[in-house]
Nucleic acid binder design. Sequence first.
RNA 1: AGGACUAUAGCUCAGUUGGUUAGAGCGCUACCUUGACAUGGUAGAGGUCCCCAGUUCGAAUCUGGGUAGUCCUACCA
Length: 922
Amino acid sequence: MEKTFQPADIETRWYQEWESKGYFAPQGGDEAYSIMIPPPNVTGSLHMGHGFQEAIMDALIRYHRMAGYNTLWQVGTDHAGIATQMVVERQLEAKGISRHDLGREEFIKKVWEWKEESGGTITRQLRRLGSSLDWSRERFTMDEGLSNAVQEVFIRLYKEGLIYRGKRLVNWDPVLHTAISDLEVISEEEQGHLWHFDYPLVGGEGHLTVATTRPETMLGDSAVAVHPEDERYAHLIGRMVELPLTGREIPIIADDYVDKEFGTGCVKITPAHDFNDYEMGKRHGLPLLNILDDNAAIGSDAPEAYFGMDRFEAREKIVADLDALGLLNKIDDHTLKVPRGDRSGVVIEPYLTDQWYVDARELAKPAIAAVENGDIQFVPKQWENTYFAWMRDIQDWCISRQLWWGHRIPAWYDDDGHIYVGESEKAVRAEHKLADTISLSQDNDVLDTWFSSALWTFSTLGWPEETEDLKIFHPSSVLVTGFDIIFFWVARMIMMTLHFRKEVPFDTVYVHGLVRDAEGQKMSKSKGNVLDPIDLIDGIELEPLVSKRTAGMMQPKLAAKIEKATRKQFPDGIAAYGTDALRFTYFSLASTGRDVQFDIGRIEGYKNFCNKIWNAARYVMMNCDGEDCGQDESLPFDRSLADRWIVSRLQEIESDVARCVASYRFDLASQALYEFIWNEYCDWYLELSKPVLWDDNASPEAKRGTRRTLIRVLETWLRLLHPLMPFITEEIWQTVAPLAGKSGPTIMLQPYPVADDSAVDSAANADIEWLKGVIVGVRNIRGEMNIPPGKELTVLMKNGGEEDQRRLTQNAPFLRKLAKLDEVTWLDTTEEAPVAATALVGDLEILVPMAGLIDTEAELARLAKETEKLEKDLKRLQGKLGNSSFIDKAPAEVVEKERDKMQAQEQALQKLKEQEQRIRNI
RNA sequence: AGGACUAUAGCUCAGUUGGUUAGAGCGCUACCUUGACAUGGUAGAGGUCCCCAGUUCGAAUCUGGGUAGUCCUACCA
């Protein structure tokens, strides 16, 4: 074995081996366990947040696969309608071509080409992360099978009246030229103005002043509203005002939506360009005047003077024109929430168009019930509230998008605007007995990507066919996801799956935190603060990292900011840590919190952990390879105290890990393993094995017993650790397993260790604690007295009981070796002890004679420190036990425990004081 | 505006139903190339558990209020 662990050498090798041998496919078994991957965008790439999520899923999958479940991890990607179309359009733009130049068919061909070209990025990343996905079943939302499922669902929902088409105000993206759903609109506070305009009353005698943040919409005003109880305006309700610049007259209406306190208490109403106004317009039967076109420029229904102007240009002109007319009352600075498209970043316009909707209210009912009655459980449970809050106030879901890339809506129109929904034009004609003379044209729009993602758990398994896979693997066991897509995806999956399968899509939703950058920001492509997990695995120099992170940034200002942050955060680039270290870091951070702040210091530590594991195995192999490790079960062997202890601890760790995984606490699981491997197996057990293995006088039985334990415990914890660190465990296991009497082509299909409670040995645990106590006591004296570690000491023991004596006799060789002693002598109570430095283990006094070794002053100082600590603690205990209400009210065993503690402390203090006296008397 | 979450060592985080001397890693200090590992070993230093009040024999933990931060939902033209 190499002296240090070199991850790069082994990772790709093992992954190829596993994949080519088909180990990732379901292996059979009575009980199924399945996870459907949240499909990443096919043309995107994974960042640290994805890496985190994949690591968790892989751990769950590997764990259950080893535990004997029939395990499926379904892999696939989605087509990300808007994002993908944008990327391809931008590429064409660079060549001066628009998608309209190409035409729909040619354009879609280009998108497919791009998908083929870029789709490999994600799958490559997934492989490097060690994800044990069943690649033979890879799916894509635009595949034929999944497209059929989408069509089937659309047609059925339409026929059931749960999908409808309607002219509504939608969130319109004037750059992407499509409607988007509420969830795709991000509203953030921005600095703007509040313009106050005077609208003259028809018939003279004054005006009303209205305020607006979007002056250009005044061209489409249908009314001015005031509060019905507003005395200032009550007498004007029903009268008309002149709408400047348009030559129109509009009524003054009363509606209690108006806030009397805000502005002047008069609101201009633009039903075609504002969601609230739209509702009010409906209540009052106001006309809808659309003054914009698809680009959000002023449309042909507006006054000619503004026709064709961009909305912001028009805004300026309208303000200027009103000013010229003396109707601009004032302009105030104003902070307002500006809605922007999450993809394009441009200001979204409420815009009147024909769109398709899903009646979400109806579908939500059973979806709410499924979580209420526990058919689906969220972990952590608090997320159920988020889910309920949204579901109980759900809005109809706008599912049509004015894009070319996506599932085209299976609806046809005749010249009279009748709608026919079906799987093809032919089918529609047949169903409705339409004559060939009637011309039909298909709806130009496609469906929201989330519409197809909502079917993911069952469409990937072959639905609408009743496949064997559906029967076995659906519902899936758990959905692993971030809380940011509970609404987008989780809720919609639950609704669709319940409706079409009459069963839940998954039993559990495990909601993990979101990975943040050093400033606590969520990682996202558009912010440019993403980190590629592969860069932590392989490492990357600063310059390539900077150019990678700033590549493709639209705004130079943002690019400069990212560059600066990158240079500050990673002045020397990023070192290569390997996949196992990265994964272990993820697990250690996977607690119940919402935020995961990735810390480079931690991955560094876990890289060292990998090296520790590697070297522990190296030590074991050096001592076991070619030796008798007890593979032959008929040969006798003796087990040392340490052997019994480490086997006992192993059982406890096994049940800890099982408990942690069952509750999705990978942070606790990883910590338990870390502590066991490093602090118990390496620090103590390996050290305790040396006195046996290196002792020429030790019996063959003892050596056999220790080697047997050494190798078997190692082999077991490798399996225990494998779901978290797949590569290093596999590499080591291959050489270790045969010596432990195990065989098999791979660790990943070996049984997962299960605790054997009968092997828990509390006597051994107690004896080892004693041994550790004595060793640490001596080391402590050595450390504080500056006695060189190599200097062998003579130690005397005093005042102990029979148990101490037994432990000493049985473990003297271990004690001598680990505490570097040349002699240990038991003093009878009658014997006079020499002046010595002292440590206490219970009643037992450990004496290190001072002659020539120990500086009196230093020892006194050490004792004083100890004494002070004890006195402080004792005071606290005395206070507690002196309090009669504590004695009366606290449970008896708690009181008893405190009493024992106090007694022990008192005795210890007593001994320290005697010791101090003795030293002073020299 | 409503709601949720977070606040523990210099940094990143644990702390299970209230009962510890409040823990881990990194970082820091001192010593050590002892035959697995200097990516290491040994021994240390370091905390007003955000603040205030309450419940309790006992609060990092429960309740109320406040402060700071993050997020979600809905929004006033």
